[in-house]
Amino acid sequence: MGTRRVRQALRDRDMGAVFRHAQQYAGASQARIATATGMTQARVSELMSGRCEVTRLDVYERIADGLHMPDDARHLLGLAAGREKRAGGAAFDLATFPEVVRVYAAQNSASEEIQQQARAATELDVLAVSGVSG
């Protein structure tokens, strides 16, 4: 399972595939994954075989924390940065991800650039967050 497939598994929130990757490439046993993520070995086995899936956000958080996922992996799962970074300030530095993160003052100002990027890209992820300043 290459990096691209792991990234897709994270985007799809396919924890079974993520666990299989951890097992194959990091040598982590089902028991070790279970201990790290606060699950039973039987639950890890069910996830890896596709007999069940994760649906709760707190479980995704527990998995990300237990597997020590870097922030970019957490973001692909739709999670905030790791707790240690959240407590100390911004989740990530926008300057670090110029090709990934853009900030627009208004919704309508993003449309043209997103369409341009989509025409040129083979893959494009879009996450829109609307904030209210006050």
Rank of each mutant, 00 (worst) to 15 (best):
V100N: 11
Q8L: 15
V54I: 13
A73D: 15
D12S: 07
V101R: 11
E123S: 15
A87D: 13
A90I: 10
Q24P: 05
E46M: 02
A26F: 07
A9G: 04
A73S: 14
R20M: 11
D93V: 05
G50Y: 01
R102G: 06
I63V: 15
R32L: 00
A118G: 10
R7Q: 15
L67M: 02
R13D: 07
L76R: 13
V126Y: 06
Q23E: 10
A36S: 06
R83N: 11
A91M: 01
Q30Y: 09
Q30C: 10
S130N: 05
M39T: 00
R51G: 11
L79R: 02
Q23R: 06
V6E: 09
Q117A: 06
V59L: 12
L76Y: 03
V54C: 10
T3G: 09
T40Q: 07
L47D: 00
P98F: 01
L47E: 03
A91Y: 02
Q23Y: 04
R11L: 15
H68M: 04
F19I: 03
A64Y: 01
A36Y: 04
L94I: 09
T37K: 01
A105F: 11
R102K: 08
E113W: 10
Q41V: 05
L79K: 01
R102S: 10
A9M: 05
E99A: 07
G66I: 06
M15Q: 08
E61C: 00
P98V: 00
R62Y: 07
R74Q: 03
F97T: 09
D14C: 10
G131V: 08
V44S: 03
V6W: 14
A9E: 05
A9Q: 05
G82D: 14
A22E: 06
V59N: 13
V100I: 14
A128R: 12
V44G: 03
A95C: 12
R83Y: 13
Y60I: 08
A128D: 07
M48K: 03
D65Q: 12
D71G: 03
A87I: 12
E113Q: 11
D58V: 13
G27M: 02
A106Q: 05
E46R: 01
A95N: 12
S109G: 10
Q23C: 13
G89F: 02
H68W: 05
S29G: 03
A106D: 02
V132G: 13
R7M: 15
A42G: 03
R102H: 08
T37H: 02
A91D: 04
V103N: 06
V18I: 08
T3E: 11
S29I: 07
I114Q: 00
D72Q: 09
F19V: 06
Q117Y: 10
E123Y: 13
E53A: 14
C52R: 06
E46L: 04
G134E: 14
A80R: 04
G66W: 06
L47N: 00
Q24N: 07
C52S: 14
R20P: 05
H68R: 12
R51D: 07
S133H: 12
Q41R: 09
E99I: 05
D72Y: 09
L67D: 01
S45W: 00
D93H: 09
A80D: 12
Q116A: 11
E113I: 01
V18F: 02
L67T: 00
R119F: 11
S130M: 00
Q8C: 07
F19N: 00
A120R: 15
I114K: 00
R119G: 13
R119V: 15
A90P: 10
A106R: 07
Y104R: 12
K85T: 06
E46K: 05
R62P: 04
Q107H: 10
M69F: 15
C52A: 11
